[in-house]
Design a protein around this nucleic acid. Structure first.
Lengths: 228, 228
DNA sequence: ACAATAGTGTCTGTTAGACACTATGCC
DNA sequence: GGCATAGTGTCTAACAGACACTATTGT
């Protein structure tokens, strides 16, 4: 039996890799080496290969090969498809989004760069990557408002004020300090590192925290939002 | 330039069409006419054709052709993919879910049937349709708890007690009457039909309601859940 | 001592849910 | 009137957010 009686469809994966750095939400872009939009900056992606077990594996491979990144959090966002989104023909792209700490930024080479999402949206992106980025932002902002998602944007140790600041950057609005700390307590996704405090500041030192092992690849959720 | 330098991938759409009938959540199954699992009951699906503008259009076509249904609500659920999920080879299936009123049930022919989701999960389904159904149930239950999603399961006119009952079937637990009505008020997705009351009951007649036009193809959401 | 930020105690307004009440049909 | 269910009024407990207070560092 033939695999399909219909014309071949271009099957790819693309990844929206995000981080928060210098108080700004940033997206990883990769310079297209070939094909349509060659030389332009776009979301990193690749064709699905029959050596990939699943599309998710293809996304992991893409992150590793193109950006040299292994992300603790990688989730399917949605699938974008259609006859016109790729000039080469009918195409399907399964989109994943991933979050990493800004410390992973170092590995960026000349074909990879980080751009604030604001700039990326202003400058525009090839294919329908603009829509994809907007979709990713909506998802991440929404999910961050009732879960521990943003902990994946943190380095191995961090303070609660730093974590709150990252939440605020992602969600885009200030959060009440007391409410934030109560939610973090409830989510139980982070724990204090015994005896580890921030140093060198001219004020009371902040307790260092780390992501709890149980939640390092999983989310903790609450049904009442972190902000209203 | 060739469309892709990699082996062709089987590209399909499948639809999880749900309704609530006789107090039970039911899924539409279609008897497979050919290919693997021929003669077995599975989620209705089809190959993507290059005459489809997008995968969503392919899903709409599938609902129309295989079930004779046009659903007021159709949303992408997720994409299932991999080398082994289809015995014919590497495949991608973009899954959509849709909700309809039980009155649409009538059009079911001999190659279509409605099965309670409980039975479907017990009896099992071909391919990875079992996982897909579980994924759809999770999504629908979750989304119903903070939105007007279940209104798409209602006939053109219905009472609030009927709507509450449908919510309870979907979510799987009882809802406080006062809370439910307050939420419906807040969501503003339904409106009373002036002077239309249920008849023939031995008790106080219930007001008939209809879905507001603005929300007939859209959801209304609230950030605080309908149940806790 | 003072500046600066970390971290906590507590008050208040809002909301969800429990309960009980009233409303209105049919017998 | 009695029964059954529709629909509402109201009290209480839980929760979010505001505010103000205490804690702890470096200068």
């Amino acid at each position: 039996m033939t695999a399909t009686q219909f014309p071949p469809i271009i099957c790819t994966v693309d990844v929206a890799l995000l981080t928060v750095d210098e108080g700004v939400l940033k997206i990883a872009l990769h310079k297209r080496a070939a094909g349509p939009f060659e030389g332009e900056w776009a979301l990193p992606g690749s064709f699905i290969r029959d050596t990939d077990a699943t599309a998710k594996e293809a996304a992991i491979r893409t992150l590793a090969d193109k950006l040299g990144v292994v992300s603790p959090y990688l989730e399917q966002l949605a699938t974008f498809s259609g006859a016109t989104r790729d000039p080469r023909g009918w195409s399907i792209s399964v989109i994943y989004y991933a979050l990493v700490a800004p410390t992973v930024l170092a590995s960026a080479g000349t074909s990879t760069k980080w751009v604030s999402v604001e700039e990326a949206l202003e400058a525009g992106l090839p294919f329908d990557h603009q829509d994809i980025l907007e979709c990713a932002l909506t998802r991440i902002r929404n999910k961050s408002s009732y879960s521990s998602l943003p902990v994946f944007l943190m380095p191995s140790k961090f303070t609660l004020p730093q974590l709150q600041s990252v939440y605020e950057v992602v969600i885009g609005e200030p959060i009440n300090k007391v409410t934030f700390r109560r939610k973090m307590e409830e989510l139980n996704a982070v724990e204090p590192i015994e005896g580890a405090f921030e140093e060198g500041k001219t004020n009371r030192p902040a307790q260092y925290y780390a992501v709890r092992n149980e939640f390092y690849r999983e989310l903790s959720v609450t049904n009442r939002g972190i902000t209203a």
